[in-house]
């Protein structure tokens, strides 16, 4: 399986660490809504098909990535930085190229 890190390029899955279901919504830190916390910590979809996942490029730039992976074919249809457009990293990359 290859994951195309937006910063590093296509890399083998061996460089990445799975960091869980990308659909999880963390309640506000002070929330006392136990149902919401329970859903966040334990409830998981198990789709046969496209799945939103968080992967960390732990053997590379260490960025967390939002990955859409098909659980049947391992096909990856989209990869993006989990924290948004990651401007600093992209700028750094552009400078490295020039």
């Amino acid at each position: 399986m290859l994951i195309t890190c937006p910063y590093c390029g296509p890399r083998d899955v061996i460089e990445f660490t799975y960091q869980g279901d990308g659909n999880r919504q963390r309640p506000q830190p002070a929330s006392q809504d136990l149902d919401a916390w329970n859903a966040y910590v334990y409830d998981r979809l198990n789709p046969a098909g496209d799945h939103n996942e968080i992967w960390q490029h732990s053997g590379g730039c260490r960025a967390h990535l939002k990955v859409v992976r098909n659980t049947l074919t391992h096909e990856i249809s989209s990869v993006a930085f989990a924290r948004g457009d990651h401007k600093a990293a992209m700028r750094h990359k552009a400078e490295g190229k020039s």
Partner: peptide, 13 residues
Amino acid sequence: MQHLEYFLDVIWP
């Protein structure tokens, strides 16, 4: 380290 990075990158950017 990964725990800290996860929260900084994903939860509290």
